[in-house]
């Protein structure tokens, strides 16, 4: 690194640019936190207020004025359920794509991938009718099924990428010992690509928590509202948008996501590109 001096861009330039962007990332977050920690009367003013009267009024309000427990439960149940469905479907599929040669392999793999490209709005109407006919509108089950479908491509491709890294000699050895293919998958492959499975699961959790359009269409009461969509309903008639409550809910969802992401940060780029980048 020392030898780079003189040729590398100057340290001041580098720190200025990176620092400027860091401020641009952080300042809106801190300001939004301050919105959550101020009374509602200090939010929308002719002259914005940057140092408010600090209060946890909004935090208390979200628990007392709204069925936040339901929203939280719906988010957790729908997201975790969808991840379980995804893993159950994706692990065998990923194994087939990574390990077997069969006709249509490329086409099937690409088909799975291509479902990631579908705009939610495009399939929203038929899926809305499908769920209505099944009597699943406004249920957590509907959210679970939709989130699972939305993330299945991603989960399959991420896990597939990690399976490709496992040397096939290990499986060959197990096979000569008489293990069946299914046993190899469960006892050898799954434990060995656990980091990939966890990465895929975390990314699926995050996208599930974030999901907005389908939830907006499916949910109409507290029995299916998630945090993401409940936010948009924090408008109390004449009160307008209740920003301090929105802020508190946003940070409530932010904290677990932050923890999950830090846990997988070294796998993040690989996960986000569905395995195209290793690093």
């Amino acid at each position: 690194m020392k030898s780079l001096r003189g040729r590398a861009p100057s340290k001041i330039l580098r720190l200025t640019i990176l620092g400027a962007w860091a401020l641009f990332c952080l300042l809106p977050i801190l300001w939004f936190l301050s919105i959550g920690l101020r009374p509602r009367t200090e939010i929308i003013l002719p002259q914005p207020l940057y140092w408010p009267t600090w209060t946890v009024e909004a935090w208390n309000m979200i628990w007392s004025d709204w069925p936040m427990g339901y929203y939280l439960r719906n988010s957790i149940v729908a997201v975790l359920g969808s991840v379980v469905i995804d893993l159950a479907l994706a692990i065998p599929a990923a194994y087939a794509l990574a390990r077997y040669r069969f006709r249509l392999r490329e086409d099937i793999g690409f088909y799975i991938l291509s479902t990631r490209m579908m705009a939610p709005a495009v399939v929203a109407i038929p899926i809305f009718f499908l769920l209505r006919n099944l009597g699943l509108l406004d249920t957590v089950w509907a959210l679970m099924l939709v989130y699972a479908a939305m993330n299945l491509s991603l989960v399959t491709w991420i896990i597939r990428s990690y399976m490709l890294d496992i040397p096939s000699e290990i499986e060959d050895a197990a096979r000569t010992d008489g293990a069946t293919d299914l046993k190899i998958l469960v006892m050898i492959i799954v434990p060995m690509c656990l980091p990939g499975i966890i990465t895929a699961a975390v990314i699926a959790v995050i996208f599930g928590i974030n999901e907005f359009l389908f939830t907006l269409l499916i949910a109409s009461t507290k029995s299916a509202y998630t945090l993401s969509v409940a936010l948009a309903n924090f408008t109390g008639g004449s009160d307008g948008v209740i920003y301090n409550a929105i802020s508190m809910v946003a940070f409530l969802a932010f904290m677990p996501v932050l923890v999950l992401l830090i846990a997988i940060q070294n796998h993040l780029s690989r996960g986000l590109t569905m395995g195209a980048v290793k690093g």
Partner: peptide, 14 residues
């Protein structure tokens, strides 16, 4: 990387 990542961790609706 952690600092730049933070905006991505909020729900898009938020």
């Amino acid at each position: 990387r952690i600092i730049f990542l933070l905006p991505m961790l909020f729900m898009p609706s938020a």
